[in-house]
């Protein structure tokens, strides 16, 4: 009545399963002496930390820096609730956040300076729209200007690309352009998340406008110059960001709690050191110390 082959299979599979569990558990225990530093937040700061983590691992093999994206809001939130050791933020910490996490004592470290640049598809840039004023950009995001021809471009509808509300890049951009970091953008046609995603959508379109960190500009997505009060257009160059001429700049921050662990402090110090600052520069940002 018993099926022999099936009984055989039953026991062999069971023993293999046991073996697999054993291997799994021993693998899990073998590295127990490493220290993890958990970092999460802004996709603008992420390249710096991710690259720094790769190099840091060569010097300190027993420390692992675990990096996660999500945006500046997530960075503060996860740090404040104790899920991470370091937050990456691409805007200033708000009073509300300081207040909300008063018990953990948020502490910031500026690791670099970046610009938020209004960007357009390369086709629009080539067609002659190379600089705009703040009011012009604001009217596009408010939905008052919907065709490039109204501001000296070709007769094409503007694809207005917005960003998720919690993104640091958006908050910096909106507070300069619209005067309110949480301003709504009724003119927006798409809402995207990370710099990568926004860059892709801009490159895939031939009539888009969006906002990007300076480090994401390339041949497909061109940064606009900004005209302030009838002055000359200010190009989004590193030099202009460095000397403070370009009007939408921001500090890139790492944030910690007051109970920062020694390895995490070491890692922050590494990013502030000359080697770390070199990575900041290679990532397309301005270093904060020479």
């Amino acid at each position: 009545m018993q099926d022999h082959s099936s009984t055989m299979r039953y026991s062999t599979v069971m023993s293999r399963l046991t073996l697999a569990i054993f291997v799994l558990v021993s693998a899990a225990c073998s590295q127990a002496d490493t220290v993890n530093i958990n970092v999460s937040g802004s996709s603008t700061v992420l390249p710096v930390v991710s690259r720094a983590a790769e190099q840091y691992a060569q010097e300190m093999p027993e420390v692992r820096v675990v990096v996660n994206a999500g945006g500046s809001g997530v960075g503060v939130k996860q740090l404040g609730s104790g899920q991470t050791d370091i937050g990456m933020i691409s805007r200033d910490i708000t009073d509300g956040e300081y207040e909300q996490y008063a018990d953990v004592g948020l502490k910031t470290y500026a690791i670099g300076v970046d610009a938020v640049v209004p960007v357009v598809s390369s086709e629009i840039y080539a067609a002659g729209v190379t600089s705009l004023t703040f009011p012009q950009i604001a009217s596009i995001y408010r939905g008052e200007v919907t065709n490039w021809s109204a501001i000296g471009g070709p007769d094409l509808e503007i694809l207005v690309i917005d960003k998720e509300a919690s993104r640091g890049t958006r908050q910096v951009f909106m507070s300069k352009i619209m005067g309110n970091k949480n301003a709504t953008a009724p003119g927006a046609k798409l809402v995207l998340g990370s710099n990568n995603e926004e860059q892709t959508a801009l490159a895939q379109s031939d009539a888009a406008i969006g906002m990007l960190s300076h480090a994401w500009l390339n041949d497909d997505v061109k940064g606009l110059s900004i005209i302030i009060a009838d002055g000359a257009p200010i190009e989004p160059t590193l030099a202009n960001i460095k000397n403070g001429q370009f009007p939408i700049t921001r500090n890139l921050l790492l944030v910690s709690r007051s109970d920062l662990s020694a390895p995490a402090q070491d890692f922050i110090d590494y990013i502030l050191s000359p080697e770390g600052q070199k990575i900041v520069e290679e990532s397309g940002y301005i270093r904060v110390s020479e």
């Binding site: 590295q31 127990a32 958990n38 970092v39 991710s50 692992r64 675990v66 996660n68 994206a69």
Partner: peptide, 16 residues
Amino acid sequence: ATAFSGITVPGSLFDP
């Protein structure tokens, strides 16, 4: 459960 980078094999049950 997941992280973006920096993880090889998780060192404990509570790593990403």
